[in-house]
Design a binder for these strands. Structure first.
Length: 197
DNA sequence: TCATTAATTCGCC
DNA sequence: GGCGAATTAATGA
């Protein structure tokens, strides 16, 4: 993430989005750098039947779409706000000018992209798992990793079963059945429908 | 508070 | 595992 004032001095602007607004579409040519001040944005695709696959959910403080500014390729994903959000948006030229005059920023971006790539490897490996229980367990581990407390049931999954399904490639019913099964095995706890891991 | 929409769950194939 | 319907939760007027 880049200091907001620095972005503003290179012409960035603030944009407010309501829930479910499209920031860009798959196939669009990348024109901006995006950074989230408040809210969250999902990067997704839809398969031929319209089933959603979520590649990533970016939250406050995170940037997205920046890797496409370094390559001459259209976006491979859609970006949609999943809640009311405030986004800092810089044009591609403003962003490139910024990193040219502030090369130190590049190492931050590098670090961030490296972390994202690390996540991508884990998620990709995860998708190859055969059984839904293994898929969900590894995915929950992945979610809990940044959480400082590793105690059992200390982490409330901050997303809906629908979202879990779209993130793991499973269908909602399978997520519901598997989570219940995991509860029987004392791998998770369910309280008021909320999942604790 | 009531109506609408989204999410969850259940029964069945 | 996935469809359709029933139930429940969330959202908004």
């Amino acid at each position: 993430m880049i200091l907001e004032d620095l972005l503003f001095s290179f012409g960035a602007e603030i944009i407010h989005y309501e829930k479910n607004e499209i920031l860009f579409r798959e196939g669009d040519f990348p024109l901006y750098y995006f950074q989230i001040r408040k809210g969250s944005v999902k990067l997704n695709n839809y398969d031929e039947h319209g089933k959603e696959f979520i590649q990533h959910i970016a939250s406050a403080g995170e940037s997205f779409g920046e890797s496409n500014l370094f390559i001459d390729q259209p976006y491979p994903v859609n970006a949609l706000s999943i809640e009311k959000s405030i986004i800092i948006r810089s044009t591609k030229s403003g962003f490139l000018k910024l990193i040219n005059t502030h090369p130190d920023i590049l190492s931050n971006i590098n670090q961030y992209l490296a972390e994202r790539m690390y996540d991508t490897y884990i998620r990709l490996y995860n998708l190859s798992f055969q059984h839904s229980i293994d898929k969900l367990k590894l995915f929950l581990d992945y979610l809990k990793r940044p959480h400082n407390d590793t105690t059992l049931y200390s982490f409330q999954i901050p997303m809906t079963r629908q979202q879990l399904a779209s993130l793991t490639g499973l269908c909602v019913e399978t997520v519901i059945r598997t989570i219940k099964h995991m509860e029987k095995k004392e791998m998770v706890r369910i309280q008021n429908g909320k999942i604790f891991y």
